[in-house]
Structure formats: C-alpha cells, structure tokens
Design a protein around this nucleic acid. Sequence first.
DNA 1: TATTGTTATACTCTATAACTATA
DNA 2: TATAGTTATAGAGTATAACAATA
Lengths: 160, 160
Amino acid sequence: MRHPKLEIIDALVQSSFVVQQILTEVGEQHDLSVIQIRLLGVLRDRQLRMAPLAAILGLSKSSTTGLVDRAERRALVQRVSVPVGDERAVHVTLSDEGRRLAQQGTAEIAERLNALAGQLSDSGRQHLARALTQLVYAAADSRGLDLRANLIKSTSVAVA
Amino acid sequence: MRHPKLEIIDALVQSSFVVQQILTEVGEQHDLSVIQIRLLGVLRDRQLRMAPLAAILGLSKSSTTGLVDRAERRALVQRVSVPVGDERAVHVTLSDEGRRLAQQGTAEIAERLNALAGQLSDSGRQHLARALTQLVYAAADSRGLDLRANLIKSTSVAVA
DNA sequence: TATTGTTATACTCTATAACTATA
DNA sequence: TATAGTTATAGAGTATAACAATA
C-alpha cells in the first residue's frame, strides 16, 4: 500500500470530514449551507409540516422556523396551508428553483464522491458500500429509527 | 442481508452524518462543539501559532481568534508568547483541563464508533479501514496536502 | 388544556474589512 | 511596507422560554 493504513476509528472520523467538506464546498457554490442542502434534500419527494421536518433534521422547532424562514426568503421553499384539517399547521414545499437546486446539488455531490470512490477497485467499492450500509443501519437501530420507512426513500443528503 | 444495501454515494453521505452526529453528541456531554473538539485534538501533541492553526482547521484568521477566545475563556487553552523571535506571535497551547477533555473526548468517540464497527465482521472492518484510508488519502492528494507530514500524527478528530 | 408554530433572546460560529503592533 | 493577530460588523445556525392561535 502506498500509504499507511489508518485505524478504523481514524478512518471513519477523517472520511466523515472529507465527505462533509465536499458537501460544504458544493453548497458554497450555490450559496447553500449543509443544513440548507439537507432541507432541500428532505423535501425533494414530499411535503412536511414543521414538526416532522424538525424531527428529521434533528433541530428544535424554533431552529426549524429560522431555517425555513431563510430558505423562504430566497424562494427555495414555500409555506402553504395544509389543505384540510388543522388551521395551525403549514406544509413546507420546494419551489421550482429549490427543486432545481436540490437536483443539481445532489448530482454535483455524487460526481465529487464518485471521483474519490473511483480510485477504489470494484470489489473495494462493493465492500465499502456493504460495510457502510451495515454501519448506518446499526446506528439507526441504536436510535430506534426505521430508516427504510422514513429516510432512505429520499436523497442521500436527506438523512442525519 | 437484513437491509437493502445502500448505493455507495448514499452510504458515504449517510455514514458521514452518523459519525458527525456521534462527534456532536460526545461534544455536547462536555459542552463542546465539533470545532472545539477539533481544536483540542489539533493541539493535543503540539503548540501552534494562530495562522497555522487557522490553516489546519480551515478557518479564517478572525474565526480562529474567536474560537480560541471562547476556548481560553473556559480555560481549555492558553495563549502564550513565543519564547524567542516575533513579538507579534502567540502560541496556543492546551491547559491541563483542555488536555483532559481532549483525551476523554477521543476515548468516548472511539468507544461509540467501536460499538458500531463491532457489528461488522473482522474482515468487514479490515476492508472498511482499507477502503476509507484510500478515500482519505485520495481526497488529501486532490488538495495537494501531505497527510502523513501534517495531520496523521495527531488525533483522529484533528483533521478535516 | 394541549398542540402547532412563531417570537424574543442569547450564544456560537463564520467571514470580510479595517485596524494595531511589530518586523 | 509587509506580516501576525485582533476588532468591528454582519449574518447563519442553534437552543430555551414565552407566546398566540387553534384544537
């Protein structure tokens, strides 16, 4: 091997910074923070009320209010009244521009990550995807989350 | 497999959030943000002046001033004058309490990550460490960094 | 009374530009 | 003049507590 192999703990931590840095850089090109990218990703294939949105993003409800405020000011999302039922509730939805940005951002992130993963052998990528999948599911299990029901259906940046 | 395997892009992004969430949670238990943990990690085995510290953390110099201010207010680090040479320069060093926190935080992060990685087979962990190492080095190469010279010598949370 | 979401407030984190002190 | 670091200022992101409107 050209380089000394990292211990698995160091490898996990450092690679997480590598990936987050890519998310940050792709976001910067569109003046989006990582949390804004996640907001767009979460909303890509659904509308959500404020409380579930806060739960998925792991934010307090007031933080979510501010996050959606700033995205709405930029016309990336809209608050629309829930068609039937609770008058207090709102649905947060992507605007056309928000959807465009979500798709473009996702594509750029995939491109950047594929460039890195492309340096691995085919079997290396297979092993990596398998091991990381187990890790992600183990983490979700330990929190009592059901990834399959909740999160996987959305884009890769939708999850925490 | 119990769960559908994630595509490698999704696996990388989602696992990065899993790891970052663990860093966040371990930090919270000690009232530390992720960037404060990294600050302590970077300083664990060296003193640094403000400019190199900013470069390693990827921050502007004024952001670094604020970060060190807040850490110094909590007596986790100290600014000491450089013994000989430039009168304008300072060295940032860990206090005893900062060192204690750095060690404890690192241990707790390792414990949490080992609990997750422990669900993998031995060969799964081997493959994972190898593949992630390649990824980290590929990312460093693409930025012209020399990880071996600069960063690896420090703790796993020292790097971006 | 309970719930949904916002507002008030405060702090961390970040950046750019202007500044001070030393080289 | 140039460099090391701080200060001034502004804004995003986060949380807790108090609030208004609706259920």
